[in-house]
C-alpha cells in the first residue's frame, strides 16, 4: 500500500487500571477500561467515538494524549510511535495533539487570566518572540474563536459556559495542533450554544485542516460534524463506518439501539425503538464471548462463548457481530 499514511494510528490500544485492595494494597483486579481498540484518523478528518458512559471512550482520548502510560498497544502520530516516547521528546510532540475537555468550568484554571491561559502553550513551545508578539498571538487566537480581544485580561469566571469552551478551544489551537481531541466538548452546553460550538469547530477544521477526534455519547450531535463514526461498547469498538453508512445501514445491534434512541423531531413519526435491558456490565468483570451478549436482543449461543472480531462488512465499514456471518446477514429489523 502506497496510500498516504494516516495522521493518527491507534493499534490494539489497551488500558487496564489496577484495583488495589486488601491489607497491603495488592492488586486484586483490573478495570478493563479500553481493551484492544484500533482505528486511524486522516488529516483534516473528524472521527467520532461514541458510546455509553463508562465504555472507555474518554480513556482512549487520554491515552493518545499520554496522560498515562498504556497497558498495551501502539499509537503512531504521522508514522512516529508516541506511546513509548521518552518524556523529553514527547513534550515537543504534544504540540501536535491538543485537547478540549467537557467541563468548561474545571478545564480552565480559575486563578489565571485568559491571556496567561492562552500564553502557556505558546511559551512552552517557544512560539512567541517577545511580549508584544505573545500578546499579538493571544489576540489572534481570540479572533479565531470569535471572542473579543479585550477579554484577554479577564478571569475565566467572568465568562459563560460557551465562551469558556471557546477559550478552551483557543488554548487547543494555540500550538498549531494537527489533531484536537474533543472529549465531550459540547456535552455540558445547552442546545443553542452547543450548535455554535459545533459550527465553530467545523469552521476551524475547514480553515486550518484540523483532524478531530470527537468523543461523545450523543449520536445526534455527532451527525452534524463527523466524517466517520466508531461505536464503542465496554472498551471495544463494535462498529466503525463513515457517517452515511453508519446512520443508514448500521449492522451491529448496539449501534442500532443507540440510533433508535436518537430523538426525531417529528411527533408523528412511527419508529421501532430498541430498548436495551439493564446497564452496561462492569468493566472489572466483562462478560465472556461478545461483551454485548447480556443485553443484545438478538443473542444466540455463539455470542456467549466466542468473541466476535471487528471485520469488514463492506468497504470501510467494520462491524464486530456474529450475525454478520449469518447468510443474508441482515436479519435485523431496519430502524427506519
Amino acid at each position: 500500500m502506497i496510500a498516504e499514511r494516516p495522521l493518527l494510528e491507534v493499534n490494539a490500544l489497551k488500558k487496564h487500571f489496577p484495583i488495589h485492595g486488601g491489607l497491603l494494597g495488592q492488586v486484586t483486579g483490573n478495570v478493563y477500561a479500553v481493551d484492544g481498540v484500533t482505528f486511524d484518523i486522516r488529516r483534516g478528518e473528524t472521527l467520532s467515538l461514541v458510546g455509553e458512559s463508562g465504555c472507555g471512550k474518554s480513556t482512549v482520548g487520554k491515552a493518545i494524549l499520554r496522560l498515562f502510560k498504556l497497558t498495551d498497544g501502539e499509537v503512531y502520530l504521522d508514522g512516529e510511535r508516541i506511546d513509548n516516547m521518552l518524556a523529553s521528546k514527547l513534550r515537543m510532540m504534544r504540540k501536535r495533539v491538543q485537547v478540549v475537555f467537557q467541563d468548561p468550568f474545571s478545564s480552565l484554571n480559575p486563578r489565571m487570566k485568559v491571556r496567561d491561559i492562552l500564553a502557556e502553550p505558546l511559551i512552552n513551545f517557544g512560539m512567541a518572540h517577545g511580549r508584544r508578539d505573545l500578546t499579538a498571538r493571544v489576540e489572534a487566537l481570540m479572533d479565531k474563536v470569535r471572542l473579543p480581544r479585550d477579554a484577554i485580561n479577564r478571569f475565566p469566571h467572568e465568562f459563560s459556559g460557551g465562551q469558556r469552551q471557546r477559550i478552551g478551544i483557543a488554548r487547543a489551537l494555540a500550538p498549531g495542533a494537527d489533531l484536537i481531541i474533543c472529549d465531550e466538548a459540547v456535552s455540558a452546553l445547552d442546545v443553542s450554544v452547543k450548535a455554535q460550538i459545533i459550527n465553530l469547530l467545523a469552521d476551524l477544521q475547514d480553515e486550518l485542516g484540523l483532524a478531530l477526534l470527537f468523543i461523545s455519547h450523543d449520536l445526534a450531535t455527532v451527525e452534524h460534524l463527523t466524517h466517520r463514526v466508531a461505536v464503542m461498547y465496554l472498551g471495544k469498538i463494535v462498529e466503525l463506518a463513515d457517517r452515511r453508512t453508519l446512520f443508514a445501514e448500521s449492522h451491529h445491534p448496539y449501534t442500532r439501539a443507540l440510533l433508535s434512541a436518537v430523538p426525531v423531531p417529528d411527533p408523528t413519526a412511527k419508529r421501532q425503538r430498541i430498548i436495551l435491558k439493564g446497564d452496561v456490565p462492569s468493566p472489572i468483570n466483562p462478560p465472556s464471548g461478545c461483551r454485548f451478549h447480556t443485553r443484545c436482543p438478538f443473542v444466540f449461543d455463539r455470542c456467549r462463548s466466542e468473541e466476535p472480531v471487528l471485520r469488514p462488512v463492506s468497504n470501510g465499514h467494520l462491524s464486530a457481530c456474529h450475525l454478520d456471518e449469518v447468510p443474508g446477514g441482515q436479519v435485523l429489523p431496519t430502524a427506519a
Partner: peptide, 11 residues
C-alpha cells in the same frame, strides 16, 4: 482537567 490540559500543552 485544567492540569491535564496543561500537561497536554507541554507544561
Amino acid at each position: 482537567p485544567y492540569v491535564e490540559a496543561a500537561i497536554a500543552s507541554g507544561t
